[in-house]
Design a protein around this nucleic acid. Structure first.
Length: 870
RNA sequence: GGGUGAUUAGCUCAGUUGGCUAGAGCACUUCUCUUACAAAGAAGGGGUCACUGGUUCGAGUCCAGUAUCACCCACCA
């Protein structure tokens, strides 16, 4: 056996290990042998415009852990990777790049060229990101990797548009939408953020027609009054009841507009009277529609006042506001201005203030009569067809669907798939043709001059179909793997993505897209802040991997966190897992250094010789059972924690130390074999590396997951822990009395328990060696100074002439007696309680009785001890 | 305005059908370079599980309310 380095160096082996996995072909499901059942996770496609960040790494780790677990459990496993073209975001990123590097705007290079260049940019980024994904260790099938703009993927997505249009779920209409003046496009509701901003509330007096009276309205945006077509009050508002039905003269515009009543008006806000601007406010637009009010668009798509704004035409909204306020003051129509904070809508991507506008856009009717997307989704979720982790997100999602409004899917950007919609020069915009291919003639007038709709799709329209557009690249994959098993995503994508996938999939395939939906929380920095460029607190996954190894990164991302909960990442934390990988490495190094060591899959009864052997095999079996359970309930961080405790405390500190005295190489090989397998999903690199060093030819990645023996008796497994606690007690005494490690001590045991005696005798060598004991005596009379402790049913005495501090010993004993008495009192009271005895499960009662008996023995011994000290 | 989550050791957090004299890692104290590992080993200190009630034989765990923090949603003109 060649000399192995003392310290595990992931940097030197990870790339090579990944290359072996890839070369083996086992990332592709069809190459896996003896499979039963399928497992599929379509990986969320990251935006192909940058690089991986720690959030991606977090999700990928979770997916890979589940994927590797499934593969080792004999499932035909497919993790399908991909990239997203990410419409608006990529356009924003690439426009900046274009400006910075070439000083050009997209308009200057033109739509076609811009598209080509952006495409090339995305492909380039995708290649780079793929190399990052491999570094993390994702066992994905790269031969199936997809891009949202791949022709086959896109075709499936666009076919959905055609079908939805045929089914009447798509309509084009002039409605109020969120307009980003910087991006120059409409946005859906979820792409708009709200920010609390200080502002002013202007109280403006509107003169009532043919009267000297006024009605005062309050607004934060006085400039929109140019487009007012009504003033509304609540029908229950007694203050204004008599004014309903009358008209007011709209100041500055001098038009006559009505006073209407609408129950959506809040009596308590402002003056209770609201100016209605249907063209520039969502609520006003709805009220306007219901009351058949005119829509006057006075702000254009560049945030400038239109011709309809009279003398203010051409001003920016900001300039117009100042002018209007001045003019109102001159007319003595401005009653007052109050300071207030209100929430302002901003663009999710570029943070520009959103301008609500009426505009002609394409929408999906999410609540159509023949197929209500939202109702179908709610139904599926309520029926638990999709299990959501954490479970409480179910309610949040249902509430969101309940309130979902029609989905605006058209964007006026250049980057993204264009609508498969055509217009004929003769027939105009009203009579459009929906068709994947460009029609040769207009079906209405046979005209031949056809142009394509310039709109591009909302990114979420294509990524919302990702679960099946990817699989449909190979029809057989779709049949085999759909619906998929697991979907993992960040909680920030709850509304953006999970919701859309559920709706779109139910519509197109009639089935849910995935059976399990697992949300990861946000990864935050040490102080709980989000990672951001402006804060400069980013942690680059590759830097971490270079410094600590991919396994350490993976562990630090999934530990200390429950589904949907945020977690914090910082170097000290990553370091502890680097240390763990090194511990496992050294455990293995020790095992490998043993003479006839090899990994063993099975052991027989004859291989179990000592208390320690029995204990470790029983505990290992129990560990496997618990790990399986935890995997099933998706509690991977708890599972990893359990594995860690077993590996470090039970195996390394307990078993291996004992095994040094009573050798059993076969047992070492057995436990290590199982541990490498159990650990593999979490820390695939170091486990695969050790596996190979141990002489295995097949890859650990496709080895069989350890079997749990359900009916295994574990009666004797508590004997060895008793030996360990005996050891600990002796060491504690040594420590307390400052006995140098070279000095041997005697151990006098007093016990009536034959079993305890037997267990101690059986493990005498181990106790002697590891606790520095020269001789063990049973039930003999000891004369002279000694320290006494109680362990289980034994009193142990350690003769120490001149070292015993009687006062200290007394104090210690008294304190312990008080503790025990308190516990015994409580326990006895419980057992004396008829209700407890009749209602608690048998197991709890017997356990309670057992503990009580033990503690009573201890107490009696301690009291004897105390008496002897008097 | 509505909702969700959090509140457990100095710090970061686990604790999923209620059975716990409440756990881990880091940090801390003391000792040890003992032939797998100082990125380690050994021993130890540290918590009325935010608060108030309730249900229960039994509550960190379930219910109701309160407080603080965080996040999300919203058509607050």
């Amino acid at each position: 056996m060649k000399e192995l380095p003392k310290i595990y160096e992931p940097q030197k082996v990870e790339n090579e290990i990944y290359a072996r996995w890839e070369k083996s072909g086992f990332f592709a499901p069809e190459n896996l042998k003896n499979t039963s059942g399928n497992y599929c996770n379509i990986l969320p496609p990251p935006n192909a415009n940058g690089e991986l960040h720690i959030g991606h790494a977090s999700g990928y780790t979770v997916m890979d852990i589940f994927g590797r677990y499934a593969r080792m459990n004999g499932k035909k496993t497919l993790l399908l990777p991909g990239k997203d073209h990410a419409g608006i975001q990529t356009q924003v990123v690439f426009e900046k790049k274009l400006q910075a590097e070439l000083g050009l705007s997209r308009q200057e290079i033109g739509r076609e060229d811009f598209y080509k260049k952006t495409y090339a940019f995305c492909i380039d980024r995708a290649n780079y990101m793929r190399s990052q994904e491999k570094k993390i260790g994702i066992s994905a099938d790269w031969s199936r990797e997809k891009f949202t703009l791949d022709p086959d993927v896109l075709k499936t997505a666009l076919e959905t548009f055609v079908k939805m249009h045929e089914d009447g779920l798509i309509y084009k209409g002039k409605r109020i939408i969120n307009w980003c003046p910087r991006c120059g496009t409409a946005l859906s509701d979820v792409e708009v953020l709200h920010k609390e901003t200080p502002g002013k509330l202007y109280f403006i007096k509107y003169p009532i027609e043919n009267s000297n009276e006024f009605i005062t309205v309050a607004t934060t945006r006085p400039e929109t009054m140019l487009g007012d077509t009504a003033v509304a009050v609540n029908p229950k508002d007694k203050r204004y009841l008599k004014l309903v039905g009358k008209n007011v003269v709209l100041p500055l515009q001098n038009t006559i507009i009505p006073i209407i009543a609408d129950k959506r008006i809040d009596l308590s806000f402002g003056t209770g009277a609201v100016k209605i601007t249907p063209s520039h406010d969502p609520l006003d637009w709805e009220i306007g529609k219901d009351h058949k009010l005119d829509e006057i668009q006075i702000i254009d798509e560049k945030s400038l006042i239109t011709e309809l704004g009279g003398k203010y035409a051409g001003l920016t909204t900001h300039e117009a506001r100042e002018e209007i306020v001045k003019d109102l003051e001159k007319l003595n129509l401005l009653e007052k201005i109050e300071e207030m904070t209100h929430s302002v809508s901003i663009c999710e991507r570029c943070k520009t203030i959103i301008e609500p506008l009426t505009s002609s856009q394409w929408f999906i009717n999410v609540d159509a009569k023949n197929f209500s997307l939202k109702k179908k989704a709610i139904e599926a979720i309520k029926k638990n067809e999709i299990e959501i982790f954490p479970n409480n997100f179910q309610k949040i999602l249902i509430d969101w669907f309940d309130n979902m409004r029609d989905w605006c899917i058209s964007r006026q950007i250049w980057w993204g798939p264009q609508f498969p919609v055509w217009y004929c020069e003769n027939c105009g915009q009203e009579k459009y043709i929906v068709s994947l291919e460009k029609p040769t003639t207009c079906p209405h007038c046979q005209g031949k001059k056809l142009t394509r709709d310039e709109n591009t799709f909302d990114t979420w329209f294509t990524s919302g179909q990702w679960a099946y557009t990817t699989l449909k690249s190979k029809e057989k994959d779709f049949e085999t793997f759909y619906p998929t098993n697991t979907m993992v995503m960040g909680r920030d994508l709850l509304f953006f993505w999970s919701s859309r996938m559920i709706m779109m999939s139910l519509y197109t395939t009639g089935k849910i897209p995935f059976k399990n939906l697992f949300f990861t929380g946000l990864v935050l920095d040490k102080d709980g802040h989000k990672f951001s460029k402006s804060r400069g607190n980013g942690i680059d996954p590759l830097t971490v991997i270079e410094k600590f190894g991919a396994d350490a990164l993976r562990m630090s991302l999934i530990m200390d966190s429950a589904p949907g909960q945020n977690s914090r990442l910082y170097e000290e934390k990553i370091e502890t897992f680097r240390n763990f990988a090194n511990k496992l490495w050294n455990i293995s190094r020790y095992c490998l250094s043993q003479e006839n060591f090899k990994l063993v899959e099975e052991i027989s009864k004859e291989d179990i010789n000592s208390e320690a052997d029995r204990w470790i095999t029983d505990s290992l079996n129990e560990l496997i059972g618990k790990t399986n359970q935890l995997f099933e309930s998706k509690q991977i961080s708890v599972a990893a924690d359990l594995l860690k405790t077993f590996t470090w405390n039970s195996f390394a500190d307990g078993y291996i130390e004992a095994q040094k005295i009573e050798k059993n190489d076969k047992m070492l090989g057995y436990v290590l074999d199982k541990l490498l397998k159990l650990w593999h999903p979490f820390i695939p690199f170091v486990t695969e590396h050790i596996w190979t060093l141990a002489g295995e030819k097949e890859l650990l990645m496709i080895s069989e997951w350890p079997a749990y023996e359900e009916n295994k008796q574990a009666k004797t497994s508590s004997y060895f822990p008793f030996v360990l606690s005996l050891n600990k007690t002796i060491r504690n005494v040594r420590k307390e009395k400052n006995i140098e490690s070279a000095k041997k001590i005697e151990l006098w045991v007093e016990t009536t328990s034959e079993l305890s005696k037997k267990v101690i005798s059986n493990n005498a060598d181990f106790i002697k060696k590891s606790a520095g004991v020269s001789v063990i005596k049973f039930n003999e009379i000891l004369i002279g100074d000694f320290i006494q402790r109680v362990v289980g049913e034994c009193i142990i005495k350690i003769p120490l002439d001149g070292l015993v501090d009687v006062e200290k010993e007394k104090n210690k004993a008294e304190k312990e007696i008080a503790n025990l008495e308190k516990f015994i009192a409580g326990s006895a009271a419980r057992l004396g309680n008829k209700e407890f005895v009749s209602k608690a499960p048998e197991q709890v009662i017997s356990q309670q009785k057992e503990t009580l008996a033990k503690k009573q023995v201890e107490l009696a011994e301690l009291k004897k001890h105390l008496a002897s000290l008097q």
